[in-house]
Amino acid sequence: MSSSQILKGILEGCLLSVISKGEIYGYEMIEKLSTYGFTMVSEGSIYPLLIRMRKEGLVTTRSKKLPSGGPKRKYYSLTEQGKEELDSFKQKWRVISDSVNQLMEDD
């Protein structure tokens, strides 16, 4: 597994978490992620992931017209399956991060 693939898996988990807080669109997700210091991926890299997550049935989308006019904005929300995926990611992440942290502290 290359480092970018690991990062993709983590990014997917984080996106699930961000979307679980309520309906949200792409740019807002990036803003949320960056407030947590999540800046190691380019902003555009969330879109191929979002396409895949929708294909896998983890998220659904809804287009809303903006009050200011212009193009419609696409909002994402989690499906039941997405919520389950988020729970399983949280568990896996806890195990990984705990063991990595312990290992690093021993150095």
Partner: peptide, 11 residues
């Protein structure tokens, strides 16, 4: 759909 979404983001 994806072009529109990226347009929104880039804007």
């Amino acid at each position: 759909e994806i072009v529109g979404e990226l347009e929104d983001h880039l804007y």
